[in-house]
């Protein structure tokens, strides 16, 4: 019983953890920002956006995409549904 329970609890496969960690590390490596600076950047962006729109703070995503030698910082600020 408890065995079964344990199994379902540990549902998050470790490969997903690896992938998430890696994506986070690579953002810092690629744009050479420390985690602190990254947080600050996120916060300042959020402050600006929050003046105009209602941002879902919990689901902000920031990625670095690379295509043909070009890099882009892609920041995703989901908008809270009003009402």
């Amino acid at each position: 019983m408890s065995k079964l329970g344990f199994k379902t609890e540990a549902a998050e496969p470790s490969k997903n953890i690896a992938k998430e960690r890696l994506q986070f590390i690579l953002i810092q490596d690629r744009i050479k920002l420390s985690p602190g600076e990254m947080d600050l950047l996120k916060k300042e962006l959020l402050d600006v956006l929050a003046k105009y729109i209602n941002v879902d703070e919990k689901n902000i995503r920031m990625d670095i995409d690379r295509h043909d030698g070009m890099m882009a910082l892609v920041a995703n600020f989901p908008i809270k549904r009003s009402g």
Binding site: P13, K15, K19, D65
Partner: peptide, 18 residues
């Protein structure tokens, strides 16, 4: 291990490294 979700698969890695 990939099947069990305990190792990143090829698609995961290629997506990241592009």
């Amino acid at each position: 291990m990939v099947d069990k979700g305990d190792m990143m698969g090829i698609d995961d890695m290629i997506e990241i490294l592009a």
